[in-house]
């Protein structure tokens, strides 16, 4: 193990242990590393945006392909910085409106065409016996999905009071939702545990070996 590798491992071990120290209580080591993390994450985006957006999408096409009109989105982007001015802050609304309007236009169709219709279609198609290759298991699963989708949608329908039949279906909906949230919770816990195992493995093996290398 070279000196450079040892320094790198010790640096990673220092930030890892400093962050974990918060589990005991707030302390200067945690705060120091927390602020380094915030700064590096912000700096990371500067590098990413500068190369992937400003250079690749704007500057390069402008100078290499003569797409001079890309100066306009550049100006619109620069106008966003007028937010820091008390008198001219309103100018940034123009750029913001352009992005919001465009995103709204894309969302209006993509949400309906790309999400609602395919999801409704998949739910309806599963009821068709021609799409069932798994026999009764498939039929049971399809019914479960249809009941689950309908009851979940009804649970989130607040325009009418949940009473009578609507209340009964909403009650089934909350049971489905609870099972799903439980499953999601289980999944999330295991994902976090897997990350924790990764960090502990690093501390035991990589950091442990570097200590052996240095002192033993």
């Amino acid at each position: 193990m070279s000196w450079v590798e040892i320094v790198q491992i010790w640096l990673v071990a220092f930030v890892t242990l400093s962050l974990f120290s918060f589990l005991y209580k707030d302390n200067p080591f945690y705060r120091l590393v927390e602020h380094i993390f915030a700064g590096l994450s912000a700096g990371y985006y500067v590098g990413l945006i500068y190369h992937s957006v400003i250079l690749q999408t704007m500057i390069d096409p402008m100078f290499r392909n003569g797409e001079w009109w890309l100066i306009f989105p550049g100006i619109l982007g620069a106008l966003m910085f007028s937010r820091f001015s008390k008198n001219y802050g309103w100018i940034s609304r123009i750029s913001l409106a352009f992005v919001m309007g465009n995103t709204a236009g894309i969302f209006l169709l993509s949400e309906l065409h790309g999400k609602v219709l395919p999801q409704v279609g998949a739910t309806m198609r599963s009821l068709n016996p021609q799409h069932q290759a798994d026999g009764w298991t498939g039929v049971l699963l399809s019914l479960l999905i249809v009941v689950g989708v309908v009851s979940t949608l009804i649970y989130f329908y607040f325009s009418k009071e949940h009473k009578g039949v609507l209340g009964g279906v909403a009650k089934v909906g909350i049971w489905f939702i609870m099972i799903s949230f439980g499953a999601h919770f289980g999944y999330t816990v295991m994902a976090r545990i897997s990350l924790l195992i990764g960090r502990v493995q690093f501390l035991i093996f990589d950091f442990g070996n570097s200590i052996k290398e240095l002192f033993g």
Partner: peptide
């Protein structure tokens, strides 16, 4: 591509 550029500046 305009939105990508303005979004980057944002």
């Amino acid at each position: 591509s305009w939105v990508t550029i303005v979004g980057g500046f944002t």
